[in-house]
Amino acid sequence: MESKIEVVGLNAGFGSTHVLKNISLSIPRNRVTAIIGPSGCGKSTFVRCLNRIHELVPGAWVRGKVLLDGKNIYDSDADPVEVRRRVGMVFQKPNPFPAMSIFDNVAYGPRIHGVKDVHRVVEESLKKAALWEEVKHRLSHSPVSLSGGQQQRLCIARALAVKPEVILFDEPCSALDPVATAKIEELVLELKENYTIVIVTHNMQQAARIADYTAFFLMGELVEFGETAEIFENPRDKRTEDYITGRFG
């Protein structure tokens, strides 16, 4: 399998807290990779290192390499802004910009990056996020009136609008009900045609349903990484087995 992101010896933390310990992992192109593990295992920090969002928290530090198409995003000549454009992110809680209309939320990214045909990009992105039909008549409304699931799909559309190559999902369904969750999962499966997807989840069923590959993190270490079926049916490590059979976490 061809890899899109190659993580080599990644260490990260806040101040004196060492959160990620020497992670090496390759994330395959146009596949869904799930990151699972108990809370506090560093899975969120891990994905936040993949688009250089982690380092924005005061006191945060990163060491090691993250190669995006073979080029280290932490090189001194790498532009974090460009990295973040290429590696999009959808957060745990839907976070549309409340002071902007639905349209402007999606148009925000393209406008920043100087895209000409903003209207077309917005429509395309909303369609890809399966939200177009629900909002096409109220594009000028505030996103605050949307349901939680709709808001999350708006955030997905917003991320798609800057034409990223990778999309990171940080527990995107943890604030949503089961129906909205099913919609997001369906969407993730559609998106993998064109994007490389990394999804953090605490829900093992979700990983099993949508991920091609799964990585199991425990206390800041990568315990096991492989095809999802392998991880779930035939884990090599005792700790992985304990976790997926529900003995802890």
């Binding site: 380092e55 005061p58 090189d75 000549d77 974090p80």
Partner: peptide, 12 residues
């Protein structure tokens, strides 16, 4: 908070 700019490693 947003951190101060100088903390970012290698940012031009």
């Amino acid at each position: 908070s947003l951190p101060s700019g100088k903390r970012l490693r290698g940012e031009p």
